[in-house]
Design a protein around this nucleic acid. Structure first.
Length: 290
DNA sequence: AGTATTTGACCGTA
DNA sequence: TACGGTCAAATACT
């Protein structure tokens, strides 16, 4: 693996943020923020619960919460549609909406039988978007299959698919893109993560992960694959920002200890949260405005 | 040697 | 024709 190659750093731009995040009023912003917080909380809670029988239930509840908020956002989005005003940050997004709303996208799921004919735009109803400082930890095993520079975006978009795509025909994919405005030294690095399709695979623990209403994010095993995308492939940028803040450094140390200690009791429960991700979490919550 | 990642090329859509 | 999404050979890592 080339985890420290800068070319695979997850990056993004505001132009590719899901439209609900940016411009559809305080209600949607609050819901989006709630999604982000739940995602971060999940990244902390699930590793600690891995050996616990309730882990599956907790993961499912997390996913249900995220699904609920996504649906709420979708409803609000429809209500605000008529009031939406185009601006620079929405150009790409609108383009995507136009593309994915076309009828041909419906053919995508069936098109997977022929790998050479699946370059179709995705259906918006199958996507869930959220903002998070920890884009790589969601309790799932992902394999990166592409990275592309997106028009008018500072950072490239990374494309991931479920590790078990071939074995179990799981169609779940996600894209990760760093937001442009998060590159400042005072702000935590934020990423837009867009999930496409539900997992239909069973993970290494044999837990069925795919249902219509929930996604069971049971943690991955400790083999080498678990770091496919649950770890940042280039932590350099994040660590740079960490070094100039001793307070955060100490806090990160405390949190790191608190997270690792229970795991040390269970050698089969690896923590897939990298140091930079803990840093990102800490920075996100220590910021006065967050 | 096996596996994951990178990256240019290709494809479908608008 | 521009763009986003995917493929697959080359490369890197363990």
């Amino acid at each position: 693996m080339k985890q420290h190659n800068s070319r695979c750093l997850p990056q993004s731009s505001p132009s590719d943020r899901p439209s609900f995040v940016s411009d559809h009023g305080p209600a949607m912003k609050e819901i989006a923020r709630g999604q982000s917080l739940v995602t971060q909380l999940r990244a902390i809670v699930l590793p600690a619960l891995q050996a616990d029988q309730r882990c599956e239930l907790v993961a499912q509840m997390f996913q249900n919460i995220l699904d609920c908020s996504s649906r709420a956002i979708t409803e609000l989005q429809l209500q605000h549609q008529s009031d939406a005003r185009p601006d620079d940050s929405m150009v790409d997004d609108k383009k995507r909406v136009r593309k994915i709303s076309s009828d041909d996208c419906i053919k995508e799921e069936g098109a997977t039988a022929n790998p050479h004919h699946q370059h179709k735009r995705r259906r918006s109803i199958d996507t869930v978007s959220l903002e998070t400082p920890v884009p790589h930890y969601d309790g799932r095993q992902w394999r990166k299959y592409g990275q592309k520079h997106i028009n008018k975006a500072k950072h490239p978009r990374s494309y991931y698919r479920c590790t078990y795509r071939k074995e179990q025909d799981c169609k779940a994919t996600k894209t990760v893109q760093q937001q442009d405005e998060s590159t400042g030294t005072d702000n935590p690095v934020m990423y837009t993560v867009v999930y496409h399709f539900q997992h239909t695979c069973k993970d290494n623990n044999g837990v069925d992960s795919g249902t219509d209403e929930s996604e069971t994010n049971t943690l991955s095993s400790s083999d080498s694959r678990s770091s496919i995308s649950t770890t940042c492939t280039d932590p350099c940028d994040h660590q740079t920002s960490l070094c100039d803040n001793k307070l955060i450094e100490k806090s990160a140390d405390l949190v790191t200890k608190s997270l690792y200690e229970p795991l040390n009791m269970n050698p089969f429960a690896p923590l897939d949260l990298d140091y930079w991700e803990l840093d990102a979490l800490l920075r996100f919550h220590l910021e006065p405005d967050n």
